[in-house]
Amino acid sequence: MNCQQCQNEVDALLDDRLDPPAADAVRAHVASCAACADALRDYKAAWAAFATAPELEPSSNFVARVMNAIDVVDREQPAIRWMLVWPRFLRLATAGAATAFVVSVASLGFLQKQTTLAMLDQRLHHDLLAELPVIEHLEMLKDLDVIRHLDQLSPTVDMEPIEQMLQEILST
């Protein structure tokens, strides 16, 4: 073991966290190295001074003060305390019921919107169909180009050119 390795192990040695063979290796090095022996002695003395320095003592009524403080907290937060002491299944049931309620309200709203749209759509179709001109002999015209354009027609389209075209076709 060299000095650097010894320095690396000093903390573990001081805190009794070295396994016996490693501790023996450090001690063997320290026994043969004056610099490391000095350093280890200083580390030990500094740690001892730190570990034995007097500590601050809490006042004798400290625990009572804390217990009084949590009384105040509990009085100020009764709702939260109530939630905390609730059994887990009751909390889960409440959360489930709340979720179900929100989902139901959202679903109802969605269904209502869909129904309204469907009714409006149906009404529009009905009105458009009622206003579309009735074209007879469609079976005769199925191969003609005009059929392909029928879907583009609207009640506002001028039907006269189409009728003329039909007349020409029928006359031939």
């Binding site: 000093v10 903390d11 001081l14 350093a39 200083d42 580390y43 003395a45 500094a46 740690w47 001074a49 730190f50």
Partner: peptide, 19 residues
Amino acid sequence: KSIIHRARVTLRIRLKPYL
């Protein structure tokens, strides 16, 4: 481990004159 070692080194240096 590195934090603890650095703290120990500093304490050792600062307290050495009083040990």
